[in-house]
């Protein structure tokens, strides 16, 4: 009763608001909000100096560089190839297209540990792909990047597909009748329409990659300073019973992810506005 009286903006005939919202808020608080606040509260047991020390040792800094760098480059490759895959799936017809379309979601459904051992086997020096490459992939930072490309693959494709399907063909016809070449039509007419969705997909892939653990630890080799990702460092600290140190690094990662979540929300609002205007 309290909920409906204070929160509802207008009268409604439908029942169940108090029960539904009450349960949702209780569950959200118990499972997500209170536990997450525990991480922030735990860091308050550290002084500011201790916090800075815990989160800026050379080993931690090296892990940030690897995690953020590899995630960024993986999301970048996914943005490029995701655009091509989405384009091909929406615009062209070729054999087994539906099957390939369905398999794009595989990284969502395949457990990360399974992906991790499979990628390690393939890109090892005696693996199916690794043996043809002149450089090492498994057990190097490059391996981290490969794993992050895999898990980020569906995001760009799936955010672009609906937008691409909605692109008004008349705009392209208009551009063509006005004398634009096909490349000009793509770069000046279609690409600007896709831009918000492309950036959203990129940011989603980046956010997913930043926190990824399961697929990376098998292929990375996990050498401190070289191929150790930040989530692994958190686990290492936990295993040494350094709870405050682990939590301090976790808070840095959480702040980065929340900032990214905010950017994603802004991008989606922008995309909606763009699509509404077309």
């Amino acid at each position: 009763m309290i909920l409906s009286r204070t929160l509802l903006k207008r009268h409604t005939v439908l029942p169940g608001f108090d029960l539904a919202l009450g349960f949702a808020l209780l569950y959200l608080s118990l499972i997500v909000l209170i536990p997450l606040s525990a991480a922030f509260l735990k860091t308050f047991t550290l002084s500011w100096g201790q916090f800075v020390d815990a989160t800026t040792t050379p080993r931690v800094l090296a892990s940030y560089r690897l995690t953020f760098g590899a995630s960024f480059l993986a999301a970048l490759l996914n943005a490029f190839f995701g655009l091509i895959v989405a384009w091909v799936l929406v615009r062209y017809s070729f054999p087994a297209k539906r099957l390939i379309d369905a398999l794009v979601d595989l990284p969502f459904a395949l457990p990360t540990a399974v992906a991790g051992i499979a990628l390690t086997a393939i890109y090892a020096q005696n693996g199916w792909i690794g043996q043809w490459l002149p450089f090492k992939v498994s057990f190097t930072p490059l391996g981290v990047w490969v794993a992050l490309v895999f898990i980020g693959l569906p995001f760009v494709v799936r955010t672009l597909q609906p937008v691409l399907e909605d692109v008004n063909r008349e705009l392209e016809e208009a551009a063509a009748t006005l004398g634009a070449s096909r490349w000009q039509t793509f770069s000046k007419v279609i690409f600007p329409i896709l831009m918000p969705a492309l950036l959203t997909g990129f940011a989603l892939a980046l956010a997913r990659a930043l926190g990824e653990y399961g697929s990376v630890i098998f292929i990375a080799g996990n050498m401190p300073m070289i191929s150790e990702i930040t989530p692994l460092l958190i686990i290492t600290k936990l295993e040494q019973y350094d709870y405050a140190g682990a939590t301090a690094i976790a808070v840095v990662m959480l702040v980065a992810s929340f900032a990214l979540l905010l950017v994603i929300n802004l991008l989606q609002a922008w995309a909606r506005k763009r699509q509404g205007g077309l």
């Binding site: 997913r208 653990y213 686990i235 709870y243």
Partner: peptide
């Protein structure tokens, strides 16, 4: 979605 699974485990250890 945006919280690393490792951190998801960590927060329950903290509690």
């Amino acid at each position: 979605f945006s919280v690393s699974p490792v951190i998801a485990g960590l927060i329950y250890v903290l509690i």
